Lab assay of single mutants.
Amino acid sequence: KLETFPLDVLVNTAAEDLPRGVDPSRKENHLSDEDFKAVFGMTRSAFANLPLWKQQNLKKEKGLF
């Protein structure tokens, strides 16, 4: 399991300012399950079932792209 970080560490943070080991294209993977659901309004599995373009739009909207 990946290390999780608080939302404010990941949202609207440039790649070079992210904690070590965080993939800038997969910031959402480093949210706790609770934060993930609070941000996206759905579970990880529901998010994973969305088309890629919709996932990317949601990530942009939430500052996690």
Rank of each mutant, 00 (worst) to 15 (best):
K1I: 12
K1H: 13
K1G: 13
T4V: 13
T4N: 07
F5I: 07
F5E: 02
P6V: 03
P6H: 04
P6N: 05
L7S: 03
L7G: 02
D8E: 14
V9S: 08
V9H: 06
V9D: 06
N12S: 09
N12G: 10
A14L: 12
A14C: 14
A14H: 11
D17M: 10
D17R: 08
D17N: 10
R20D: 15
R20N: 15
R20Y: 12
R20S: 15
R20Q: 15
G21W: 07
G21A: 08
G21R: 05
G21E: 09
V22G: 02
V22S: 03
V22R: 02
D23F: 03
D23E: 06
P24H: 07
P24L: 07
P24W: 03
R26A: 10
K27V: 15
E28T: 03
N29L: 15
N29V: 09
H30I: 03
H30Q: 03
H30N: 07
H30S: 08
S32H: 05
S32G: 06
S32L: 04
E34F: 10
E34T: 10
D35E: 08
D35R: 01
D35W: 02
D35K: 02
F36K: 00
K37G: 10
K37P: 02
K37A: 13
K37V: 15
K37D: 13
A38N: 13
V39E: 02
V39I: 09
V39P: 00
F40G: 00
F40M: 06
G41N: 13
T43L: 09
T43R: 05
T43M: 07
S45D: 13
S45K: 12
A46L: 09
F47G: 00
F47I: 00
F47W: 07
F47P: 00
F47L: 01
A48S: 11
A48V: 09
N49K: 14
N49L: 14
L50F: 05
P51Q: 04
L52H: 10
W53I: 09
W53T: 09
Q55N: 00
Q56L: 13
Q56P: 00
N57Y: 13
N57H: 13
N57V: 14
L58Q: 02
L58W: 04
L58V: 05
K60S: 10
K60A: 11
E61F: 07
E61H: 08
E61P: 01
E61Y: 06
K62F: 08
G63A: 04
L64M: 07
F65D: 15
F65Y: 14
